[in-house]
């Protein structure tokens, strides 16, 4: 489990996060949602240690992450996988080399064992046989799937996804969502997803935290979204008249 305690973050005089406290649960897809500029990415980068908070604590189980030295943080990061918004695949390496990179860095496996693990991961994301392609030769959705494969190759306990559906068509988005959800359940991973994709919220939102202007204004799950009387959440989720009509119809049923 990841526990966040009163996290604050300022850039100069701008206070981006104003005391966020929440829990991210294992075996669940935990979503951080909010409008652009709400502080989602900053919170996610604090969770993985790319930003240091101005105040507050991040607990990985019983370990206060920001009290650790660099070497200790690296040890925790071995248990962390991350899918970046732009996939962040190494563009000079093939798909296979990208996924094998963490294995080369941190394991003593033989070439054959590494290849087997890479192929397992590729099969898991339905990209069998794409080993020798370069990131520039595959579609955005495939790049995301390679990113997922790379992030799970070391069997992490924590998986972070920054806008996994951005730039993808609705069908591919659903594939990515389902993939993340099933990997989370299979491996009992604590998955934290930063998104503003409404479909993700309604399909895989086991534990949702809504940020608004740097504050946590609502927390619940996908089933509670429809019934909420939180105006900020309603305005965010059901932003268009079409979605408002859908919600009314669903509530009427």
């Amino acid at each position: 489990m990841i526990k966040v305690e009163n996290i604050k973050k300022s850039f100069g005089k701008v206070e981006v996060l104003q005391g966020i406290s929440c829990n991210f649960l294992p075996g669940k897809t935990n979503l951080i949602i909010g409008r652009s500029g709400a502080g989602k990415t900053v919170l996610l980068k604090i969770l993985v240690g790319l930003f240091t908070p101005t105040a507050g604590k991040v607990w990985y189980n019983d370990t206060d992450f920001f009290q650790l030295n660099k070497a200790q943080r690296r040890a925790i990061r071995m248990d962390v996988g991350m899918l970046f918004q732009g996939s962040a695949l190494f563009d000079s390496l093939t798909v296979e080399q990208n996924i094998r990179f963490p294995l080369d860095m941190f394991t003593n496996k033989t070439k054959k064992e590494k290849l087997m693990r890479v192929n397992d991961c590729l099969a898991r994301v339905n990209l069998d046989g794409s080993n020798d392609k370069f990131p520039s030769e595959i579609s955005g959705g495939m790049q995301k799937r390679v990113g997922i494969a790379r992030s799970i190759v070391l069997e992490p306990k924590y998986l972070f996804c920054d806008e996994p559906n951005s730039g993808l068509d609705p069908k591919t988005s659903i594939v990515i969502d389902e993939l993340i959800k099933s990997i989370t359940i299979e491996n009992n991973i604590t998955t934290v997803i930063n998104t503003h994709d409404m479909n993700s919220v309604m399909e895989i939102g086991d534990n949702i935290a809504l940020l608004y202007k740097g504050e946590l204004v609502w927390q619940g799950n996908k089933d509670e979204v429809l019934d909420t009387d939180n105006q900020i959440l309603q305005d965010f989720i059901f932003a268009s008249p079409f979605l408002q009509r859908l919600r009314s119809a669903a509530l009427a049923k």
Binding site: G49, V80, M82, M105
Partner: peptide
């Protein structure tokens, strides 16, 4: 700029050394 260094950091790689 392409977040490759961030990706390596999160994997636990000592990026300056690597």
């Amino acid at each position: 700029q392409k977040e490759h260094i961030d990706a390596m950091e999160i994997m636990g790689v000592n990026t300056a050394a690597y």
